[in-house]
Structures are given as structure tokens and as C-alpha cells.
Amino acid sequence: MKNIDWKRKLTSRKLWTAVASFVSMMIVATGGAENTATQVTALIMAGASVVAYIIGEGLTDSANIGSDDSEE
């Protein structure tokens, strides 16, 4: 079985767009209002932005741990 690159998957805009689309369509299909679906989609995409930022910053910080850029 192949290893899954979770960092890459969680920062993928395609993944979060698919999740937001699925959830909003489920809300509409189950009788929810389109306004509610739009608000939930916006919340999912905002959360995706936060997740991507946190993972990106973590990767940047971990790459800079070994560097010796201290100023004198």
C-alpha cells in the first residue's frame, strides 16, 4: 500500500472545493435553503485556507530549523 501525502492533500484547493461542493449539494438535496448552503460552503473554504496556511507555515519553519542565518 502506498503512503498518502496528507500535507499535500490537505493543502489542495481541489480537495476543499470538492468537499464544499458535496456538502452544499447535500444541504440543498435534503431540503435546506440555498442561503444556508452558501454560508456552509464559505465556512468550509475559510477553514481550508486556515489549514493550508498552518501546514505551509509549518513546512517553512521545519525547513529553516537547520539553517544558520543568525545575525551578529
Rank of each mutant, 00 (worst) to 15 (best):
S12M: 15
D68P: 01
K9N: 06
M1Q: 14
G32L: 05
S49N: 13
G32H: 02
A18V: 02
G58T: 06
A20I: 10
V40Q: 05
K7L: 04
A52D: 02
S24C: 07
V23E: 01
I4K: 05
L59T: 03
V28S: 03
R8P: 03
E57G: 13
G31F: 13
V51S: 11
W6L: 12
S24G: 02
A37Y: 09
T41V: 03
D69N: 15
V51Y: 06
T36Y: 06
M45N: 04
V50T: 07
E57Q: 11
M1Y: 04
I54R: 04
E71P: 13
E34Q: 03
K2L: 00
E57D: 01
A37K: 01
D68T: 12
V23G: 04
V40H: 00
A33C: 09
V40M: 01
A29L: 14
M25K: 12
L10I: 12
A52N: 01
V40N: 03
G58C: 00
E71M: 14
Q39H: 11
E72L: 11
A29V: 08
M1R: 12
G66L: 14
S12H: 05
M26G: 14
S24P: 02
T38Q: 11
S12K: 14
Y53V: 07
V51Q: 12
G56Y: 06
N35G: 13
S67E: 13
L59M: 05
L15N: 12
S70G: 13
G56H: 01
M25D: 07
G58F: 03
T36E: 00
D61P: 01
D68M: 10
D68C: 06
G56S: 11
A18L: 00
I54K: 03
M1C: 13
N35M: 10
G47V: 13
A29C: 14
K9F: 06
I55Y: 04
I65N: 09
V40C: 03
W6G: 14
V51R: 08
